[in-house]
Design a protein around this nucleic acid. Sequence first.
DNA 1: TTTATAATTGCAACTGGTTGCACCAACAAT
DNA 2: ATTGTTGGTGCAACCAGTTGCAATTATAAA
Lengths: 137, 137
Amino acid sequence: MSCTTTLKNKGLKLTPQRRLILNIIHESGGHLTAEEILDYVHARVPGVNKSTVYRTLELLEELGCVYKSELGDRFIYHHAEEGHHHHLVCRACGKSIDCDEDVFLPVERALDKKYGFQAHFKHMVMSGLCAECRDKG
Amino acid sequence: MSCTTTLKNKGLKLTPQRRLILNIIHESGGHLTAEEILDYVHARVPGVNKSTVYRTLELLEELGCVYKSELGDRFIYHHAEEGHHHHLVCRACGKSIDCDEDVFLPVERALDKKYGFQAHFKHMVMSGLCAECRDKG
DNA sequence: TTTATAATTGCAACTGGTTGCACCAACAAT
DNA sequence: ATTGTTGGTGCAACCAGTTGCAATTATAAA
Ligand SMILES: [Mn+2]
Ligand SMILES: [Mn+2]
Ligand SMILES: [Zn+2]
Ligand SMILES: [Zn+2]
């Protein structure tokens, strides 16, 4: 479902500020921090308040329109309708490998079967050792 | 390996402040926020500075002595030598289900096989729908 | 012991992000 | 058209957590 209809279905409004923030995340193709988004917003419409931006990001995440992922020491935002994938980040060399979205299917099935729990793993960022760094160290 | 030897092996010191923080996390049995840890530290030794506490928590996490997990809107610290498990948190009713640590083994094996990437999933907190709430909604 | 080196802490200033609140805009009911 | 209600924004004060730095401590070399 599109962000626009998700908002409307909940009686929420697609204000100019929200449209602007959604456009910025969408055009970027993913991986913007809140601070970067705030900068882009100010570059286009200087008057928008930072609390509006942070509140909008929180709202969009709760609605499932964007995903928030912990990447190293910061958080990045990713449009939910972009191509789905995960990231493997090497803690030794810092390299990031794109990862197929299906690797978590066995976990989702096991959690459902054992606990009746319905979980979805979206745009996960995993820290670990890449093949090269593992062979060295 | 124990925290003490991990520190010594890296030329780092087990100062009274660090020992105190480790004891607090260990005795709690897990799930303390940084702010709660800071409060417990001040209750025992009022002079310790907050920057020391935050820097110590960051250090212990990097060393792998404690795990930091995102639980809802806050972060909790968990002693690495406590019993290993994960948490399933229902986003509808808030209930937390303890989860077997082995559920991520298929993912760890798949990442290793497909990408040569070595990842370890420790004390994960997963958001989703529990059985009861799924049946209702 | 004396000196050099590196680790650690406390302090104070700073910053990213949050919160309470008054005002404003959209919309529905009368 | 008027009123009532709900949602959204800007503003300013606030707070948790970070950072730079000088002073302190432990350790090792001379
Ligand atoms: Mn991505
Ligand atoms: Mn736990
Ligand atoms: Zn690597
Ligand atoms: Zn539930």
